[in-house]
Amino acid sequence: MHRQLLSHLAHRDHPIAAPITAAALERLLRRARLPADARVLDLGCGEAEWIIRALELHPKATVDGVDVSEAALAAAAEHAAARGVSDRLRLHHTTAADFTGPEPYDLVLCVGATHAFGGLTGSLQAMRRHLRPAGRALVGEGFWETTPSPETLALLDAGLDEYADLAGTVERAEHAGYATVHAHTSTRAEWDEYEWSWTGSLTDWALDHPGSDGDAALAAARDHRATWLRGYRDVLGFVTFLLRPV
């Protein structure tokens, strides 16, 4: 199965697509203190839960969502229609790096999608190109809660420099030319809810679809669960920064 379809199926019961609760997501959006007629951009929007909630909080705002997954964008359009915000949402099927907007934005998001720009620093550099001078960036990134073992790094197919610790991650953001005005550090409970949902949703779908696709989905769910439980649980953290360019 294509990786994008696997991700879409795994997130069907957790459209936030990050180890964050709906309440924490809303607090971050409110702390952005957007103007009434805000323009918002999400680079790697998935099913667009973040920007749909932004539209609900700001009835005069308009948003652009960018993603490479057709399945996720189709789901985003359905969610937006069901919640009555379709007229203020524009969805773009393209890579985050290739997107260009006609005007700068008050808020630019990239949560759990920094790989699209080669990591946190590259993402923040790209986000700045879309921001108004007084705009905000909302970016979600992993960090090392504890130093990973060689076995964990092998499971993640990652190097030690893939992430920093939390203090180092703050430094990376600020070295990219931003000031941290707020942040949410995901809890273990948020991580567990996200991972059980990811693996469980994919397993549930696989059992309902016997055959080659079901077998592939079930294998992916089991591999992911093993990597989490035997590898990065309590090792890899997740932080979502609210930043201002300086």
Rank of each mutant, 00 (worst) to 15 (best):
M1C: 08
R3A: 13
R3Q: 12
R3C: 05
Q4R: 10
L6N: 10
S7D: 15
H8M: 00
L9P: 01
L9H: 02
A10Y: 07
I16H: 01
P19H: 00
T21F: 00
A24Y: 01
R27A: 14
L28M: 08
R30C: 10
A32S: 13
A32E: 04
A36I: 02
D37A: 13
D42Y: 06
G46S: 01
A48R: 04
E49V: 07
A61E: 04
V63M: 03
D64H: 14
G65P: 02
S69K: 04
A72H: 08
L73S: 11
A76Y: 03
A80C: 00
A81E: 15
A82W: 01
G84Y: 02
G84R: 03
R90W: 02
A97F: 02
F99V: 00
T100L: 09
G101Q: 03
P102Y: 03
P104L: 08
P104D: 11
L109W: 01
C110Y: 09
C110I: 10
V111G: 03
H115F: 13
A116I: 01
G118C: 09
L124K: 05
Q125V: 14
Q125D: 11
A126D: 07
P133A: 14
A134I: 05
R136C: 15
L138H: 04
L138W: 02
E141S: 02
P148G: 11
S149I: 12
E151D: 14
D157W: 10
A158L: 07
D161Y: 04
E162G: 01
E162N: 04
Y163E: 10
A167L: 12
V170E: 15
A173R: 00
E174C: 15
A176S: 12
A176E: 05
V181C: 13
A183L: 15
A183K: 08
H184A: 02
H184K: 00
T185W: 05
S186Q: 09
A189H: 06
W191N: 07
E195A: 09
W198M: 12
W205I: 00
L207A: 13
D208I: 04
P210F: 08
P210R: 06
S212G: 04
G214S: 12
D215V: 08
D215Y: 06
A221V: 03
R225G: 14
A226Q: 14
G231A: 07
R233E: 10
L236F: 12
T240S: 12
T240P: 03
L242I: 05
R244L: 09
R244E: 15
V246K: 09
